[in-house]
Design a protein around this nucleic acid. Structure first.
Lengths: 152, 152
DNA sequence: ATAAATTCATTCGTATACAAACGGATTTTG
DNA sequence: CAAAATCCGTTTGTATACGAATGAATTTAT
């Protein structure tokens, strides 16, 4: 039971200090869970990147929005949402117009193509969420989502 | 209690289908939790990016490794780990040498500078993990990490 | 009403991320 | 052993991600 009797395997470290293991770190685990989720997404949906999908989903949910507001609601900063919107415009899935009352703003809205594409993909998206959470039981899923939400 | 009595707020959707809310999706929640964690990291550590830190941490933990093996253990693909190692080399925190027995391999190892820098930052890194998990009680943290690990 | 502060969209620079394709080296297999 | 399969590192191309700086527009505070 004497701590100092345990031979230290960590090079040049005092044995009282627990080792720093990358695989135990919250950041690394979040990253790997995200990678797994994005892999499941990529196997199910090829027409849109995850952020492009999120953008169309938010526009469906909230209607037309200024580009910055859209970025806020999808958790992208101004520089990032700009690129996503540009690429969606190139695919004619969204369109932009300048705001009449506030000339700083660019209003982003879905095209009918964008609306239809998203409608077609929503069931698949629900399936992706299910597949991502499949390693957990239903009650574990509820607990996990509850705790994850607290960390945002 | 009649479902069909409830006026539908979702444009053009049948009311039996629950709405698809971005804020409820596991991918979006993982992303926001990661963003919060990276923000905490960024406020505490400026000398290294998170992936550069992870790379030095893994080298400290496992010793010298081939570049590809290092990528596997840090969950980076070959193209990504190459860039990270290149930037760490430029800062003289790691060094590379070719493997004598397998001429395909490049062995990556810490320099003394890299070893010292990581030693100096490890306590801060533990604090970053603590801060990230602070919204949860100790027992919630244990449950969360247990479930998160199942999703990797 | 006007100076100050804020917001909006854009641009630049740096750092992941990953698919795909490549040539060279090693291992596996028939 | 020789062909096939695999592994290694590299490069290219596309897509986030975000800090910082900018100019134009709007709001706030005085």
């Amino acid at each position: 039971m004497n701590k100092t009797d345990k031979p230290s395997a960590d090079a040049g470290q005092t044995s009282g200090v627990p080792p720093y293991r990358l695989d135990d770190q919250i950041g690394h685990l979040l990253r790997r869970a995200t990678q797994r989720h994005l892999s499941i997404y990529g196997q199910a949906i090829n027409a849109l990147t995850p952020m492009q999908f999120a953008t169309l989903a938010k526009l469906t949910e909230a209607g037309a929005l200024s580009q910055n507001a859209l970025g806020r609601l999808t958790a992208m900063d101004g520089a990032t949402i700009k690129g996503v919107v540009d690429r969606l415009k190139k695919q004619e899935l969204v369109q932009t117009q300048s705001d009449k009352t506030d000339r700083r703003r660019t209003i982003v809205s879905l095209t009918s193509q964008g609306r239809e594409l998203l409608a077609d993909l929503t069931d698949t998206a629900r399936q992706i969420t299910d597949d991502t959470l499949r390693p957990l039981t239903d009650s574990e899923q509820a607990i996990f989502l509850h705790l994850l939400r607290k960390l945002t």
